[in-house]
């Protein structure tokens, strides 16, 4: 897909994210905005999926480990045919399929339940092990935040994936530098996640500009070429709140909605 077209889709997804959180008066904008290019390039060009057959056994899996970033997940699922755009209005409302945090199968296309952080890599690892036993080479992509790496379970999974030389498991690290209360380096400094994954025996590429479509695409091409031999991690340098000037790199927009003025301003910037 031409870069320009993907960039237009990304802008549309960002508008959906801001509107969903604004209308719900709650939700996680910052960590959704930072993952827009990663997810859009993935769903456009790499993820082997079919919205008409969300249970197709041989499909690639996308695991949302940072389960609070549902605004970007639902907006992407809408963009790629899993739900109608209109359903995004129901986000976080009583009776919706679009809960605040990911729930497996709601809607179809959501492959795991999340919200408690640090579980997605284990879940994806298990899926790859199961797919391997079934004779399927389908890929499993797991999106994690950098703050999420405070959770020890991720390192249990990193160790096990390497030990079992799990192929076609690709970890996507959204390194936006901010977690719930503050910057990650002030809360619990994870230092170089890339070096840690290398030490655990993974193939790693870091320093990827997570908002440049070409860079993101190249990273996925590299990851898929490496993943047949064992687990692969891509570390994307991203900006929390990317796309709206006053949200960018601002810890206040991890989990807070914009007010009326902020919403208007954001939609102007994203038009």
């Amino acid at each position: 897909m031409p870069d320009l077209e993907i960039e237009l889709i990304c802008k549309q997804i960002r508008r959906h994210i801001v509107r969903m959180v604004y209308e719900a008066k709650s939700g996680h904008i910052g960590g959704s905005m930072s993952a827009v290019e990663i997810m859009t390039v993935l769903y456009s060009e790499f993820l082997n999926h079919d919205s008409e057959r969300p249970d197709w056994p041989d499909r690639d899996r996308f695991i949302m480990s940072k389960g609070h970033a549902t605004p970007v997940q639902y907006a992407v699922l809408s963009q790629f045919g899993y739900i109608l755009e209109d359903e995004l209005k129901t986000f976080r409302q009583l009776g919706t399929r679009l809960q605040g945090h990911s729930v497996l199968g709601k809607p179809p296309g959501v492959e795991n339940s999340a919200g408690s952080l640090g579980m997605g890599l284990s879940f994806g690892l298990g899926q790859r092990l199961g797919l391997h036993l079934k004779g399927s080479a389908a890929n499993v992509f797991v999106l994690m935040g950098d703050g999420e790496h405070n959770e020890g379970q991720i390192w249990e999974a990193a160790m096990a994936a390497s030990h079992h030389q799990v192929s076609n498991l690709i970890a996507l690290i959204d390194l936006n530098g901010i977690q719930n209360d503050d910057f990650t380096e002030k809360t619990l400094n994870t230092n170089s996640l890339a070096d840690k994954y290398r030490a655990f025996g993974w193939q790693v590429r870091d320093g990827i500009n997570g908002h440049d479509v070409t860079s993101v695409r190249e990273a996925f091409v590299w990851a898929q070429s490496m993943a047949t031999d064992g687990p692969v991690a891509l570390q994307f340098n991203t900006v929390k709140g990317k796309g709206v000037s006053f949200m960018e790199n601002n810890p206040a927009f991890h989990g807070a909605p914009p007010n009326d003025d902020q919403f208007e301003q954001a939609m102007i910037e994203l038009s």
């Binding site: 497996l104 492959e111 795991n112 997605g120 284990s122 879940f123 298990g126 199961g130 999974a157």
Partner: peptide
């Protein structure tokens, strides 16, 4: 969590 993933 991996057991859950395998089950899917």
């Amino acid at each position: 969590s991996a057991a859950a993933g395998i089950a899917t």
